[in-house]
């Protein structure tokens, strides 16, 4: 089992490297270069050449790639083209806002989706199941900004219960914080909840087609026990994968949510970077999100390997 886990870890590192090549390749090699981006339309050939010399852009791409990668590993994320500040500093001040949103949303949506998914599976074919299936099917198809705007319209604009801006201040007390964060966290949770719930349900239902589930049912066991004790352990691996996928998918949700509710977070930074074509900033943000994604998937895989008795107890 340890061999398998180690192999999987190595694969993760490899994927991360490939990802870094893609990021670097897409932003550096393909269209023009950073110097052109800085100088914009008003550039002269001369100025370009000087700037390129200054920034070391004349060196081969491979050398620059390893330079950049080395910097990344040591925590040096480069200097922003737009603000001329170190990217690391810019990111640091924003990171917490995004992380807080994501963690809160995860803390709510993961247990809730598991519980709802299992409940739905237990009532398969019944009214609860059908209602939940319809609702989540619709929720999946609705754009996040629609959910966000509706929540905002109802709870912030009309009812005025909650705050439309997620900007928190250091002097806020718990309730003020809650009022500010409730809507963005709810929007984000909705976005992933439906998908996770559906996948939990279908993974469990899928297990129910196996002969061993029929066998267990014919022992006269109650549904609760069948679902939780017999089906869930076998559905664990797909469920873990889906959770990892959705947590990393939150990045897309977070981008929208931060825009709707004006959260000064990491993804806003990225979007601004994209608008201003601030290449070092884009690269750094992309690497961070990519790493999170790969890490989460890795974690899910390792957990499901450890939960598999075939691998835990070989013959």
């Amino acid at each position: 089992m340890h061999r398998i886990i180690l192999t999987r870890l190595a694969q993760g590192v490899l994927t991360l490297l490939l990802a870094s090549i893609i990021i670097f390749g897409a932003t550096e090699i393909l269209p023009g270069d950073v110097a052109e981006a800085i100088l914009g339309q008003s550039r002269t050939e001369e100025a370009l050449a000087t700037l390129r010399e200054e920034m070391g852009l004349n060196r081969p791409a491979i050398v620059r790639y390893f330079d950049w990668l080395g910097g990344m590993v040591q925590g040096d994320l480069g200097t922003s083209l737009a603000t001329k500040r170190p990217v690391a500093d810019m990111i640091e001040s924003r990171m917490w806002n995004t992380l807080r949103l994501a963690l809160l949303a995860a803390a709510i949506s993961v247990p809730l989706s598991l519980a709802l998914g299992l409940w739905s599976a237990m009532r398969a074919g019944g009214r609860v199941d059908k209602t939940l299936a319809m609702t989540t099917l619709a929720l999946i198809a609705v754009p996040e900004f629609f959910i966000g705007l509706i929540l905002m319209k109802v709870f912030a604009v009309e009812l005025k219960w909650l705050s439309a801006s997620a900007n928190t201040r250091p002097y806020f007390d718990f309730w003020q914080n809650a009022r500010a964060l409730a809507l963005p966290v709810a929007t984000l949770s909705f976005a992933v909840l439906a998908h996770m719930m559906r996948m939990t349900r279908s993974s469990v239902i899928n297990i129910f087609t196996s002969p061993y589930m029929e066998m267990a049912a014919l022992k006269g066991l109650p549904k609760r026990r069948l679902v939780v004790l017999h089906a869930l352990p076998n559905a664990l691996s797909p469920i873990l994968t889906v959770i990892a996928l959705n947590l990393s998918y939150m990045v897309s949700g977070v981008i929208i949510v931060e825009t709707v509710f004006g959260v000064p977070g990491l993804t806003r930074l990225l979007v601004d970077g994209v608008t201003l074509r601030d290449i070092p900033l884009i690269q750094a943000c992309a690497m961070i999100f990519g790493a999170v994604y790969i890490l989460l998937n890795l974690l899910a895989d390792v957990l499901s390997i450890m939960a598999n008795p075939r691998l835990r107890y070989p013959k």
Binding site: V251, V271, A286, F289
Partner: peptide
């Protein structure tokens, strides 16, 4: 492998990187 590496990014992120570059 290549597709897997592409999938290692949330799709929005991938799109942002490309749009940022082009």
């Amino acid at each position: 492998r290549i597709v897997e590496a592409f999938m290692a990014f949330p799709s929005t992120l991938l799109a942002l990187v490309v749009i940022g570059a082009f």
